[in-house]
Design a binder for these strands. Structure first.
Length: 510
RNA sequence: GGCGCAUUCGUCUAGCCUGGCCUAGGACGUAUCCCUCUCACGGAUGAAACGCGGGUUCGAAUCCCGCAUGCGCUACCA
């Protein structure tokens, strides 16, 4: 039978994502999740989330929590799954052990599977032997002929045993929604192990049972599963189960073109969230690695993705993860936030990173320099700096002078181009005079600018070369060669701290 | 080794099914210039790709064959 060939209508689809809680939710699984989700939503089907934790040694509750939390954060929800029990639950493999056991027993009873008592050493020896004779290493069939009494006896003796599936020799043809027609010769596999014992099924077996019982119609997964597909199909056939239709998408590669992994830096969604990436940016970026519409549009909201998604546009070649593009998307979505929204986002971020402390309703304190600020301060900050920010953590890097008490810089930095040291000192004095004169209540950048403009128009050297006064002012306030404009910094750090820094600069120049 | 999958600018990709509209389009990044006290923003301009070799055809990025390269699977992981 050619799996999936006959059903190419996408009505009443049930698709699933089956992450294993063996690590923090990473970019790659978010991508497959997203495509399953888009598929379900676009074709008005059901999206099932199933936790694949049959590997008890590696699966943890912490990772499971991380997966659920971050999917929610990204805005991906499910119709059935953890916290949303439906009629095909439970949705956690570790709670379905009795179910697998029945099917395992059925295969055993029908002699479609058998106990294997070979030890790892014996297996190793068999493979070695085959390889040395130029054969393809696969299970020799050493244990495939014991009779019931023999097996009973061995099991009673507590011999460690695994359950192997009697692999039929046949050609399996698959019509993959993304790859097209695929062909496999199952005789190459040998009798694969489908369970460690009756209570510990392995992935290739459990997944078949689950997909069947959960009435999954379409399976979208990474192409690293292509070789598993024929195995799952023969198991399904042995159980008289109709397999789902498959769609194997490409994998994500790191810059060195190997599969994206920890050695390429952080790949967990949590770490991107922490660095200050927006869920909409992540979704947009990830969706475009492995899927693309026929036109030139690149900015997509989740709703637009659902609307425009089609399986036909799923790509088969692997995509290399490019953080600069992610940064671009994040910057884009940051710009689209209103200053008020941004203000809230920045507050949360700085609170989280313990840069500021909440002191009451609309009252915050910058920990290091004791500046008392409120929400409108953050609104201003956002108006001034959001354009250059790629991710929220950039605020800490680019605008450190706003959050620190002391700033440090090379004295030479105060000098504008080839200005004379003496002129710079004069400029700083001038700035101190001007800033001192401005009343606290008028300490807004627009007003400050008017005052400075007046001073500049009154002094010919400054009129000709504004950098002569503006550069040292800005460096004295920020300690950096790159920063926001001097008037904005004055407003943000306030009169007291500004004067302090200007006096500091004056000292340095002597 | 065996099996499988992939191959258009540095990167993500459009175009490929249904050959001519492709002197290959867009985006990110990058370069130069303008704006400018700096950074960023904005504006202008540019560099940059059909893996290689055959074939089919009047014509190939597009169809066919071979090769090369990369990746994946070949677990008592998923």
């Amino acid at each position: 039978m050619e799996a999936g060939l006959q059903k190419n209508n996408f009505e009443n689809t049930r698709v699933r994502m089956a992450p294993s809680p063996t690590g923090f939710l990473h970019i790659g699984s978010v991508r497959t999740t997203l495509f399953n989700y888009l598929f379900a939503k676009h074709y008005k089907g059901t999206f099932v989330l199933r936790i694949e934790d049959t590997d008890v040694e590696r699966s943890t509750l912490e990772f499971e929590k991380d997966i659920i939390e971050n999917l929610k954060w990204l805005g991906i929800d499910w119709d059935e799954g953890p916290e949303k029990e439906g009629q095909y639950g439970p949705y956690k493999q570790s709670q379905r052990l009795d179910i697998y056991k029945q099917y395992l027993q059925k295969l055993l009873d029908e002699d479609k599977a058998y106990y294997c008592f070979c030890t790892e050493e014996e297996l190793e020896a068999q493979y070695q032997d085959m390889a040395s004779r130029g054969l393809i290493p696969k299970y020799s069939g050493h244990c495939d002929h014991f009779d019931i009494e023999e097996i009973k006896q061995k099991l009673l003796e507590n011999k460690s045993a695994v359950i192997r599936f009697r692999m039929p020799n046949k050609i399996i043809e698959i019509n993959d929604l993304v790859r097209g027609h695929l062909k496999f010769d199952t005789s190459l596999f040998g009798d694969i192990i489908i369970a460690k014992n009756l209570n510990e099924p392995l992935y290739n077996f459990a997944v078949v049972i689950d997909d069947y019982l959960m009435k999954i119609t379409h399976v979208i997964r990474g192409d690293d599963h292509i070789s598993n597909t024929p195995k799952q199909i023969v198991i399904a056939e042995a159980l008289d189960i109709t397999p789902a239709t498959y769609a194997h998408i490409s994998t994500i590669l790191g810059p060195d073109k190997t599969r994206l992994s920890k050695r390429h830096g952080s790949t967990s969604i949590a770490s991107y969230k922490q660095a200050g990436y927006l869920p909409e940016a992540l979704i947009n970026f990830i969706a475009l690695m492995g899927w693309h519409p026929s036109g030139d549009q690149e900015i997509f909201s989740l709703e637009q993705l659902i609307d425009q998604f089609t399986v036909e546009r799923l790509l088969k070649s692997p995509a290399i993860f490019n953080i600069q593009k992610l940064d671009f998307f994040n910057n884009h979505y940051l710009q689209k936030k209103s200053p008020e929204e941004m203000s809230k986002i920045i507050i949360d971020f700085l609170l989280e990173n313990k840069v500021i402390i909440k002191q009451g309703t609309d009252q915050y304190l910058i920990k290091d320099n004791n500046l008392k600020i409120n929400e409108s301060w953050f609104t201003r900050l956002s108006q001034i700096e959001t354009k250059k920010i790629k991710k929220l953590s950039d605020f800490l890097e680019y605008d450190d002078y706003l959050f620190q008490e002391k700033i440090s810089y090379e004295p030479n930095l105060l000098n504008w181009k080839d200005a004379l040291l003496n002129d710079t000192a004069l400029a700083i004095d001038k700035c101190i005079d001007i800033v001192s004169e401005i009343e606290e209540g008028n300490f807004k950048s627009e007003f400050i600018q008017i005052i400075f403009d007046r001073c500049i128009s009154e002094n010919q050297i400054y009129q000709k070369n504004r950098g002569l006064i503006l550069w040292p002012l800005r460096v004295a306030l920020s300690g950096k060669k790159d920063s926001a404009g001097p008037y904005e910094i004055l407003e943000l750090i306030g009169k007291e701290l500004s004067l302090k820094r200007l006096q500091e600069a004056k000292k340095i120049l002597r």
